[in-house]
Amino acid sequence: MLAYIAKIKEISRRLLQEGSVDMVIGFRKGTVPMMNEPCFVKTPQDVDTFVWDSNCGINLANYLADRKEKIGIVAKGCDSRNIVTHIIENKIKRDQLVIIGVPCKGMIDRRKIQALFETEIENVIEADDTITIKGRGFEKTLYKKEVLQDNCAVCIHRNPVIHDELVGDLVEEQKGVDRYEDIRKIESLSPEEKCRYFDNLLSACIRCYACRNACPLCYCPTCFVDESRPQWVGKSIDPIDTRTFHFLRAYHCAGRCTDCGSCERACPMGINVRMFTKKLEKDCLELFDWEAGMTLEQRPPLDTYRPDDPDDFIT
């Protein structure tokens, strides 16, 4: 981690000094344990702001859409795949970017960790594979791999798929991961059980839209829930309106979602919002052999038509 930080600073300083970028987007240290804040740096003197550790789960591709500057951006595997998606969807140009790739071993889940303790976590110290948690009257060391964000635990693209610089050696990709165990479980439910499952899943939703706004894919100038002429969806916390929002948002992400986990990480109510997007991600893999954001050379399945597209689901 420390080596990564030094390298991020070194590369950023160089890029800013030689004027090849106007700004670098990365993370600065957060004010509470297990949180960092996305930030930008515009001068070589300021690069010391940058940090890197297992609390950089927010997807920085979200900060690129429609920017006009030349930008250096720190990107882990999932961020890089969303950068690819942004380039394909014309939200940013490849030649505007210097991608500072970060091989990633997964981000830790602050809520999962807090849930292990009765009282407040006051300090978290990170080492290579472990984190030490301290609070009033307790101290415990955990293996990071045991407390990863759910999406990181099943991630199979930890290395950046596109990069101009690299802050460290590539890491070994996880092999033999069963990515869809949870989704298969939901698929096997009866329609009534599914309905109940999703109602429970969403019962805590407060319609704050943190999931949508943390998502790099959700860049529509006006989201359908914010349309007022006409208004498509109610604004209250009526379960039908809430459900409509989540289902429609998920469909808008089909074939584009990289399972970066930003939506779930951002949710203040701890809702597993990935359960919507992940089903569509699984379908895209099974129907079109497609994983989003892996290449600049191919259009995504939902904006292309092929005569041999699978159509078994049409009855």
């Binding site: 996305p38 704050c208 839209y209 943190a210 109610g234 951002a266 203040p268």
Partner: peptide
């Protein structure tokens, strides 16, 4: 710099005990 990271969700306003703004809707 303050606004850069903000994703413009409503979390801060909805968890806040003092934010009072509302919207009137007919359904």
């Amino acid at each position: 710099q303050v606004a850069f990271a903000c994703i413009n969700c409503g979390t801060c306003t909805y968890v806040c005990p003092t934010c009072w703004c509302f919207d009137i809707q007919d359904e």
